[in-house]
Design a protein around this nucleic acid. Structure first.
Lengths: 135, 135
DNA sequence: GCTTGACCTCAAGTGCTCTTGAATTCGTAG
DNA sequence: CTACGAATTCAAGAGCACTTGAGGTCAAGC
């Protein structure tokens, strides 16, 4: 199995080396050894990094993911948790769709003030607090 | 025009008083006066707060919104900017949809390891870096 | 062998959005 | 008029995800 040094991982993943070291410290990735001081990574770390990006997009924190990856290294994922997270994403998607439509409307609307436009006012009522989580 | 004290605004907006003070400090909302030390707000602050929530959901920072609200207090919104932001939201929505589908798939998938499941691997390739912005 | 330059460690700093705590000031009820 | 409770100010702290900087080390090239 081919090993990559940190520069190569950085280049192929698009992440800065500092982030890779940070992820390792957090237990999100592992280096397989050293060449002198220099970390060596298995090629599979690239997959792991994609998985992390995926998880971030889905609203997991780094810490949560570190837990999921568990001891063995293979994602030990709780299915119920995933479905929960998917439902959460659904809410966020619906929210963002309203946002987007709202923005487009406001950009096009000719009402003297947006606050006087009924569509905008309806939008505001729905804005409320966005379902939490980053994206 | 009815005036509300901070507790009432907090209760009706769902935001803690500390956040309201923070928003005022940042120039996002204004109190119309004081009763002794106590801030008084116009009822319209509730609308403003919805607008702020909306903007947050759309990926604006508090500072950006403070600028938009400008001197007069009426949202002085740059339409081109809104459309840009809407397009950005579109990207994020598409990304989240992939996420969500991916999560559902993984929860249902019976492959021995997710990494061996072709659907999951395809998903990973798309995960890349999520379009920036919060929510 | 010595220089070079990439990588290393560890601590501290950044940006954003708030929250918390200590000490103080008021208006209102009794 | 006094005591209470709610608001106030100001400074500091928190959580997340990283980044930056200073100072050290090591493999490789000349």
């Amino acid at each position: 199995m081919k090993t990559l040094d940190i520069a190569e991982v950085a280049q192929r993943s698009g992440l800065p080396a500092s982030t890779l070291r940070f992820y390792e410290e957090k237990g999100l990735i592992r280096s397989t050894g050293r060449h002198g001081l220099r970390r060596l990574f298995a090629e599979s770390v690239l997959e792991r990094l994609s998985l992390i990006a995926l998880g971030q997009g889905a609203g997991f924190t780094l810490e949560e993911m570190a837990e999921m990856f568990g001891a063995d290294g293979r994602p030990a994922i709780d299915r119920a948790r995933l479905l929960e997270q998917a439902d959460d994403l659904d809410k966020r998607i619906r929210h963002l769709v309203r946002m987007r439509d709202g923005l487009r409307h406001v950009a096009a609307c000719t009402a003297p003030s947006h606050l006087e436009c009924p569509t905008f006012r309806r939008l505001l009522r729905h804005a409320a607090r966005p379902p939490r989580g980053r994206s």
